[in-house]
Amino acid sequence: MKDKILEVKDLEVSFRTYAGDVQAVRGSTFDLYEGETLAIVGESGSGKSVTVKAIMGLLATNGYYKNGSIMFEGNEITEMKERDMHSIRGNKIAMIFQDPMTSLDPTMTVGKQLTETIKLHHDVTKKEAHDRAVNLIELVEIPEPASRMKQYPHQFSGGMRQRIVIAMALACEPRILIADEPTTALDVTIQAQIIELMNDLKEKLGVAVIFITHDLGVVANVADRVAVMYAGRIVEIGTSNEIFYNPYHPYTWGLMTSMPDLETEGKLLAIPGTPPNLLHPPVGDAFALRSEYAMEIDFEEAPPLFKISETHYAATWLLHEYAPKVTPPAIIVKRKERFSEVSE
């Protein structure tokens, strides 16, 4: 196994509001290894974006770290001062957002924005910064980089803009690249190109990627490992094969059955109800209210992460030795049949 570069342990993040504290992240634990892509999947409000914002030290003013730790290169991020964060944020951990237009300055040429980033973090001359910027634009496969440097963001298409944002994020050769729904605003064909580019860059630069998305199709393409989040907790984590072909948590099952693939016929198996309000999170397993597999204990005590294999963990009481054996939905059974095929 490769080296750990980031360790998140029992992280809890809350936001103070007039109505009380919203417990957005309620204990998530995961590691990030060098050069891998970890996808975090979940619905809106599941805490996936808050988790990565906590890693970047970018919580809103009413947000605070309630508990847990985030270790990066021997630094405890939850206790770092804003001034010290400057040497990490953008430099060692960089981030790409969903909408490329909002992360670029419309009044500045793309070249200026890139060179400024480079000059801020490195001690280089104007000329060196310029050359480096041209190289970066070339790296993200935009044709004619030198003349593109002089253009403004509005002169680029959506896909090209996202490429520029990726170039900016890579400007300081970060060790971790966090991508928060980077392709959601793009068309399918453009999305496919950006994903291909990100996969190539990961190989080329050896940067570790945390990829946040709600689209399981995208996850299947990019991820080495997958963490599924629900109501502020990681409910299942494992390698891509384990999550897609051998899932154990009823929520993971629900996500997979509620999405049609090209062969789906008949009714979709939707997850009933809506996610819980994290102002007053339910006692026990937060998914129990929506799950047909819920048992009495699910309403009393939250399940711990049960170990399935060295790399695969799921937080459901169904894995307890006293739990009854349940049969997952037919689609999941079919997926599990393919697990032996991939694990060989």
Binding site: Q191, A192, N221, N241, F244, D261, V342
Partner: peptide
Amino acid sequence: SLLSAIPLPDPITE
């Protein structure tokens, strides 16, 4: 080209 770009929740085909 459109059909070839659909992301599917299936790492083997991906």
